[in-house]
Every structure is written in C-alpha cells, then in structure tokens.
Design a protein around this nucleic acid. Sequence first.
DNA 1: GGCGTACTACGATGAGTATCGTACGAGCGT
DNA 2: ACGCTCGTACGATACTCATCGTAGTACGCC
Lengths: 119, 119
Amino acid sequence: MTTATNPRVLDHPAREEIRLEGVLHALSDAVRLRIVSEMARADTELSCSFFDLPVTKSTTTHHFRVLRESGVIQQIYRGTAKLNALRREDLDVLFPGLLDSVLDAATAQARRLGNPDTL
Amino acid sequence: MTTATNPRVLDHPAREEIRLEGVLHALSDAVRLRIVSEMARADTELSCSFFDLPVTKSTTTHHFRVLRESGVIQQIYRGTAKLNALRREDLDVLFPGLLDSVLDAATAQARRLGNPDTL
DNA sequence: GGCGTACTACGATGAGTATCGTACGAGCGT
DNA sequence: ACGCTCGTACGATACTCATCGTAGTACGCC
C-alpha cells in the first residue's frame, strides 16, 4: 500500500499535535516569515521554487521542512513539484487570531524598515 | 553620571529596535512563555523570584535576559530585587494584537493540554 | 530510453542556546 | 558588622540550528 515509509508521503502533525512553541519558533526566522507572508498573500498552493529566497536550495528545503513539521504549512507532491499551503484553518481553530496578527506584524515591520519587497 | 557601564543599569532595546523575529523567538520557549503569561495576568511589576520555574536560578536569569534583550519585558533594579514588567505599550504600537493573541493561544493550549497550572 | 527540472539526503561547519554548578556582588534587616 | 536573600558572572556541556556543497532520486516530457 506504500503507506509504510514512502518518501513521497510527507509527515504532518495532526491538528492536536501542533504546539504553540513550535509555531512561534518556526515563525521566528526571517526567511520562514517571508515564505509564510508570501503564501498568505497568494492564498493558493505554491511550489517551493516559486519563492525567490536569499538562500540555496538545500537551505530552502530545510526551512520548508521546519514549517511543515511545526504544523504551519501543508506540503504535497504533485508530480515533480511540491505544493505548499498554509494550514490556516488548523491554526485559526487552535490559536484564533494568532496567524493574522503575526502576518500583520511582519507587514508592519517590513514597511517600517523599508523592505517592502520582503513582503 | 553612572551611565557608562553601570552593572545596575540594564540595557533595553529602544522601541524602534525591537524586531519581530526576536520577539517570536523569545516567546517560542515554554519557560519564557510561562513567565510572560504570568506577568500578563498579574499586570504588576514582579520580581524574578516570584516565579516558580522548573529550572535553576542561573537558567532563570538567562531566560529573563532573553526576554529583556528581545524587547518583551522591562527590568529595573529595586534594591535587592529586580522588577519585571511587560512592555505592553511598545509591543502594541509595533505589533497591534500580537501579544494578546499569543497570550490567548498560550492559555488555550494550556487548557487543551490539561496544564491549567502552567498559566 | 534519455534529458532536464524539482526537490532531497547527507555530511560538514559554525553559530547559537538551554541547561547546570559554583562562586561572587549588592542591598536590606537586625 | 553580619548574615540573608536576590540575582549575576563565568565556565562547561550538550544540543539545536541555519547554512552550504555535492550527490542523488523521482517525475514529466521528448
């Protein structure tokens, strides 16, 4: 059934397993904050290569994994690509308003620091 | 003027120097989240020793320093004690709603995980 | 089948950090 | 002055993490 240890099936924490500390830690990195902000703006599933990040591909993989394992995003393989989506509903149920205020804060800070391209 | 390098005067970041990543990182630790939750509930200046934390005194000092240097709390010496206060106004101006949703999330999670004493 | 693209795995590295114990310093109360 | 309490400093340790480069795998397309 390929359910055992299929490398093409990615492990995600169930909603109840998501921990606030893990989410905050995942969001406490500039690169990951940027990824999440962009995903929130797009509101569609985006491939990893969509993002133009100031790090190499291996590092990008690492950051996406952190986001997935902390429960912030969901990742599924679609052929050769890997589509990413925010777990908005799960996060809103667990921590109402949290994601939005973090995203607003990120926007506000980017504007304040004069990095509007970082959004 | 005792402004030079007085060990009794603690360095705090100015409001404009507070970075979202730093705040989120400071809050992404269970011990520190607990400290901040308790401070928000008390709404008064609390000494470090007020908190009953599952770590030693040196580790406690470390966590308070992280909170101070990230801009989450303010610390002042008052005789032999060191009083701690949340920098609510600064945080609310910079990141409206953020602190409250994190605190709500912490409360919700504590309730969900059955640690009501952690609040 | 063979090529190119998208992403991963692995190992390395350098920086950060959570933790502790012990020893120390600064005030307060008596 | 003396001791007590509160908190710090410093060194050690073990762990985590952000980053990279290289090599590899999986899939779609020609």
